[in-house]
Design a protein around this nucleic acid. Structure first.
Lengths: 202, 202
DNA sequence: GTCTATATCCAGATAGAC
DNA sequence: GTCTATCTGGATATAGAC
């Protein structure tokens, strides 16, 4: 019966989405170890037993989310790189959209916090570590490339491009953390301050 | 016998130091929840049972360390504020010493990571939360004050001082995290890049 | 003060009924 | 597919011997 099979698949997908969403919120706010499988089940609105029909462990969910987090981030970076605007606009626009996403408190912010937790803690699954090891470099490289192009055009400061790329992303991570401490009253700072690290004044 | 009492006190102090040092390293690398009391005892070189003669729980150790972390940080900020140099030098010197401390990988770096973990995770003891709530503001306020003084003297940019203070510290937190991901090959970025957010070019 | 042994508890994971 | 009940293991904390 292909009808049932199809429906089951759909249910399965929906359940997985529920679980992932609930887990993301919990992992983003507590990290891996402090998040209990019971909480995930509760927040997902399903029983604990059922959870194991979709994921075989907490770690698997975590790793799955880390993978998605980097896919999204790296995708956004590639999109940014391919925009048809001059380099200095890319740098500004990229930071602008990240700050906006942080501010509106949707799952984008949670993905950033998830990455923060995953980066900060030694105690994560080896699979997740491998993903970080491999994917974490991508955003740095892309921003660095954009910065170099801007330097050629004379719109980006002549500091070491690698250093600037590091500061670009550490600032983002720092702001994501800052938001974690002040969840409700987070106001993104004036972007021009940040831009003065990279852009030559006009 | 006052002799024995004195010696016991000394032993007790030393043990406490051992425990705190071991815990700091573990908490800095794994966070509260993933750090097991067994690991702490092992790393301290004492038995698990003995640990409970010095601290009544993991949470107590954690809270104790968070308290110390902020005491140190706030002390350093006050020291910085009272230096007899112009504001823009304070801003630069403060950031310089933090980056140095991060790079040489001593316990200073671990205290920063501890604060990062504590800030990032919802799942920490209420006492620790209260400390963060209360003490976290101090460094921001001091840097803001220094920045305002610099603005009066015309050496600091005229951006919103609160925003700049936020960025000062989020950059530090971000860099501490960045170091956590690349423990061995961390090279502090060119400080002039950071300073261009705050200092008027000369 | 310090250890080993043990009790308690809770989280993770499984089994089996519906 | 979903639940409740249960098993198992590990982590926290205590007890008691030295």
């Amino acid at each position: 019966m292909p009808r049932n099979k199809e429906l089951n698949e759909k249910i399965k997908d929906e359940r997985r989405e529920q679980i992932l969403l609930a887990s993301l919120e919990l992992f983003a706010s507590k990290g891996l170890s402090a998040t209990k499988i019971t909480h995930i089940a509760q927040k997902s609105g399903i029983s604990q037993g059922l959870l194991y029909h979709y994921y075989s462990s907490k770690e698997e969910i975590f790793t799955d989310l880390v993978k998605t987090a980097f896919e999204r981030l790296n995708m956004a970076c590639k999109y940014l790189y391919n925009l048809d605007v001059p380099p200095q606009k890319k740098i500004r626009y990229g930071m602008e959209s990240i700050l906006e996403n942080l501010a509106v408190s949707d799952s984008s912010a949670n993905y950033h916090l998830l990455i923060a937790h995953a980066s900060l803690s030694e105690d994560i699954p080896v699979e997740a570590k491998a993903i970080i090891q491999k994917e974490n470099q991508v955003p740095y490289d892309i921003i660095e490339k954009i910065l170099r192009e801007g330097q050629k055009e004379g719109t980006i400061k002549k500091h070491d491009a690698k250093d600037m790329a590091v500061l670009y992303w550490t600032t983002v991570k720092g702001l994501a953390m800052h938001k974690a401490v002040h969840p409700r009253k987070f106001v993104p700072p004036d972007i021009n301050i940040l831009m003065s690290m990279f852009l030559i004044d006009q």
